[in-house]
Design a binder for these strands. Structure first.
Lengths: 355, 355
DNA sequence: ACGCATTCCGTAAACGTTTACGATCCTATG
DNA sequence: CATAGGATCGTAAACGTTTACGGAATGCGT
């Protein structure tokens, strides 16, 4: 059992050294796996440390060597995020940690308070110097945070593209590809009047998604109609509103692309209230971030991916830009678009009759 | 603009002092609002710090004064947690931060990796001394972590009860009350064969929930039937399985209590596959953790609460047990059971005919 | 026996901050 | 004028590490 009763309280490496009758320098070297220490004394030191429950004080070591062995993941716990992103971050976190653990790096999450400017929050966190590197999520299309990070020289990787990011590393879900694939599939089924829902175009995701949609339509020679682009929250309620707006259109679309699977719950509900059956009267395609609406009827045709693996890639990209680890992870992929796979359901399986 | 180009790089308080031609002691006192410093020089120092973008190195100050101004929230990103309860934490986090912000305390989340023992993880984090206090969530009925925390004397509060917690502070959702209220309501509607779903009884929540249910039945003179207690995951899939098991029973229950609203989605689906209509043929009551299944048809009768407010209470309990803040938050409520309110839906609104 | 390389260990400086203590100056009071 | 006392500031020690440097001991070859 660690730290049994008969020892004096463990105050630091000093006590440990005294207890072993060696100098603190040797103890430090022994604990950190440095050379220049007899293999047998190393054993003794390790054993004593374990027995007395000694662990190096992080403040001391990070003061000395200017490093903390901690990676921070900044998230903005805004109301909207809270409502929707549910397991997204925790899943990515699993992938991140599986890589970091190999290098004794710890991951902490830095949740920016609702009422604080993310820029100011990040500034404070960087100044604290409690993290060696950062992962920035929920990127805005224009995002001041990257100006700050560029100045401070702290290694980072962004989860999500941004115009402000320059040549810095990032990874992002291929929402462009999702929009493209969705349009392709719907057009192949005979649809030509296709609506899409997306968050505000301030969020880079909202911009990219609709852009991909617009270009895909162009490719198929279909005119882009702004009335078919519905900006809405990525929640059940948002889906309900999307359906509501679509029902009000004079010329109703025959298909709709949702950015989050979750929205399908609300959308199904609303169109069924109007006597419209999803998968028969209207086609629906979404992106599955979470295995939430697995029990929707009819099952949703959607795009999905392994967020765990995305976390792994993200971690490797970050490490490759940290001097201490760049020899392990060569600087190949600095920026990457993460692919998604189509999972056919039945929500878009009917073929339109020729009009 | 902070840190304009013409200044030398800011290395520490030393540079700032040199730049102002004052001693570092005075600079430190000025920045930290200590007395013994002329009000005008304080202005100068603050202005210069702002202009040069100086922020105190956290390692240095925490080494010196043994405090970090950071509170840690430990979460276990186990697969099950990831699937279900993510927005739970982010919502509580909002409440926590609204209190901590008043005292310049920062909150960080410590996600225990899937493959690491929570006890060992916590041990590492405590030894790091990067947090002044801890919030422990997802408590087990028997939880070694509290033995560790009791030894280290670090202030903490638990989110969730545990047998191992002794006299230490905690707050917990009133699942006992939920079970009681659900049984009362269902019995009032004429039900006497009532099933319940809960997680494993190793999780304290699972134990307490079923205990409350058992006692409520007893109070109404209804025999407790272990066959009606279904242990399942708190997900849609879990709800589906619950329904599956219930359908296999010889003597089917007329009502079922779910611990998570999310499960209702799967349960609805499964019973409807069997031609049973929720709210007409079977009554359903749940606990609403998130506004997820708001669009269920029929709307679910459920218990809900403000998790944000719970976070506020949790923060105040924690601060009251930290010496530096106990004068602000008197030690009144050390342990508290957080109430939930019944939100009537239509999933249990029918009355059974007398048999 | 001598020189040299190697192995191991101790010493002390440094990291950036806070703070107890003492020094200095000024003002008011006797 | 002498002095007490308050206001303001500088000095230096301390927090717990890591690590460059040098010294002692050992092994080896000649």
């Amino acid at each position: 059992m660690a730290h049994g009763g008969k020892h004096p309280p463990m105050k630091g490496i000093r006590q440990l050294a005294d207890h072993l009758d060696i100098s603190i320098g040797t103890v430090s070297r022994a604990l950190n796996g440095k050379p220049d220490v007899n293999e047998e004394t190393r054993k003794r030191v390790l054993a004593a440390a374990e027995q007395l429950g000694y662990v190096a004080n992080q403040s001391g070591r990070s003061l000395r060597q200017g490093t903390t062995n901690v990676i921070g993941l900044m998230i903005q716990s805004s109301r909207e995020t809270v409502e929707n992103s549910d397991n997204f971050f925790l899943t990515v976190t699993g992938g991140l940690q599986s890589v970091f653990a190999r290098h004794n790096l710890d991951l902490i999450m830095l949740p920016c308070p609702n009422d604080e400017d993310p820029y100011e929050y990040l500034k404070r966190m960087v100044a604290r110097r409690v993290v060696d590197a950062l992962i920035i999520s929920e990127t805005q299309r224009i995002d001041k945070r990257f100006d700050l990070l560029a100045k401070t020289k702290i290694p980072f990787v962004a989860l999500g593209r941004s115009l402000s990011i320059g040549q810095h590393p990032w990874a992002d879900l291929d929402f462009d590809g999702v929009a493209n694939g969705a349009v392709d599939r719907l057009v192949a089924h005979g649809h030509r009047r296709i609506a899409i829902s997306a968050p505000s175009s301030d969020i880079n995701l909202g911009f990219i998604f609709v852009e991909g949609y617009r270009r895909a339509l162009e490719r198929h020679g279909i005119a882009y109609d702004p009335a078919l682009v519905i900006r809405a929250k990525s929640s059940e309620q948002g889906g309900y509103q999307v359906a509501d707006e679509l029902l009000r259109l004079e010329e109703r679309p025959t298909a709709v692309i949702l950015i989050y699977e979750l929205m399908a719950i609300g959308l199904y509900r609303r169109v069924m209230e109007a006597g419209i059956i999803p998968g028969r009267d209207i086609a629906v395609v979404g992106f599955r971030e979470a295995p939430r609406a697995k029990f929707l009827q009819p099952p949703l045709t959607c795009f999905r991916t392994s967020l765990h693996e995305l976390g792994v890639e993200l971690a490797e990209i970050l490490l490759s830009s940290m001097p201490a680890y760049s020899h392990i992870y060569p600087q190949t992929k600095r920026q990457m678009i993460w692919p998604l796979q189509l999972v056919p359901g039945e929500s878009d399986s009917f073929h339109l009759k020729a009009e």
